[in-house]
């Protein structure tokens, strides 16, 4: 199974990659982990004239943690976040999402930023990073812009990325308290795309009041969706069963799934409700004070 013929450039620097994109126009495409791009090229859904390989650019590897938050380079792979114990304290949702991505072989090569740029509506990272309030940095030869992820994701396999731009970094703001987050996924078989994916993230202050909340949904719309009304319902209250049920019902309303062989619209909506409730309850249990202290 051969892709259509294409040219190949291994970029030696980000500037070189940007210069090639500026010169070549829409026929050129960035190659990072290739775990979505190669299958599309083999099926000839994608036929780029030129691939610009950035998978080893030092400027795009690894991450930086600062007082403002976390910046992930464009070629950070799923498996790196799965194993990053140092990120568990402030960004627990990352590792808990990474372990759900495809299978270990894909996680070893595929990148988080590539997954966002691919914008599969059933992709897990869109939901998780929306829940974390992430933004993306887009660079071209002539400009740099930062977009909230919510504005970057446009439609099915469609983002705000221009042909001459590279998604160079993902920024996640530092939580203003103790963060708790988890990802729930319904898949037909191990390693499959999400029938429904739900990311829940809450930040609690010292009095166990929710000060930040993020709920992201995968597989239930033309792109990953946020559930702003559900998030708003959680803020300012302790994480308790009444509020959790209300948020779950609001999140189900934010979902906009289609009926297909994986389930009906009503079924998928109900899975969203159940997962949001289940996820938030799990976070509430995790956040309880130590044994011997009554809340």
């Amino acid at each position: 199974m051969f892709p259509a013929p294409f040219g190949y450039v291994r970029a030696e620097s980000l500037d070189e990659a940007l210069a090639v994109l500026a010169r070549e126009g829409p026929g050129a495409k960035i190659l990072a982990g290739g775990q979505s791009l190669l299958p599309m090229m083999k099926l000839r859904i994608a036929e780029p004239a030129l691939l610009v390989d950035i998978h080893r650019l030092p400027a795009l590897t690894g991450w930086q943690e600062t007082a403002e938050g976390l910046t992930l380079g464009a070629v950070v792979r799923h498996s790196q976040l799965e194993r990053a114990e140092a990120l568990q304290e402030f960004y627990p949702l990352l590792g808990r999402t990474a372990r759900w991505i495809a299978d270990p072989l894909v996680r070893n090569r595929g990148t988080v930023a590539g997954s966002l740029a691919h914008a599969d509506p059933a992709g897990d990272w869109g939901a998780a990073l929306l829940a974390l309030g992430a933004s993306v940095t887009l660079r071209s030869l002539t400009r740099t812009r930062e977009l909230p992820l919510d504005a970057f994701l446009v439609d099915i396999f469609t983002t705000a990325l221009e042909p001459d731009e590279v998604l160079t970094a993902i920024r996640i703001p530092k939580p203003a308290g103790r963060p708790f987050g988890t990802y729930l996924k319904l898949e037909r078989k191990v390693g499959d795309f999400a029938v429904v994916g739900v990311a829940v993230n809450v930040v609690l202050d010292a009095r166990h009041t929710v000060v930040e909340a993020g709920i992201g949904l995968a597989g239930v719309g033309p792109r990953a969706l946020r559930a702003p009304a559900a998030e708003a319902a959680l803020i300012g209250h302790p994480l308790e069963s009444g509020g959790i049920r209300e948020a779950a019902a609001l999140a189900a309303e934010a979902a906009d799934p289609v009926s297909d062989r994986r389930g009906s619209r009503a079924y998928k909506r109900n899975v969203v409700r159940v997962f949001v409730e289940r996820g938030l309850k799990a976070l509430a249990d995790e956040s309880r004070p130590e044994v011997g202290v009554t809340a």
Partner: peptide, 9 residues
């Protein structure tokens, strides 16, 4: 690290 050689050029 294990990876699929059909998904790399």
């Amino acid at each position: 690290e294990p990876a699929r050689s059909c998904l790399m050029f």
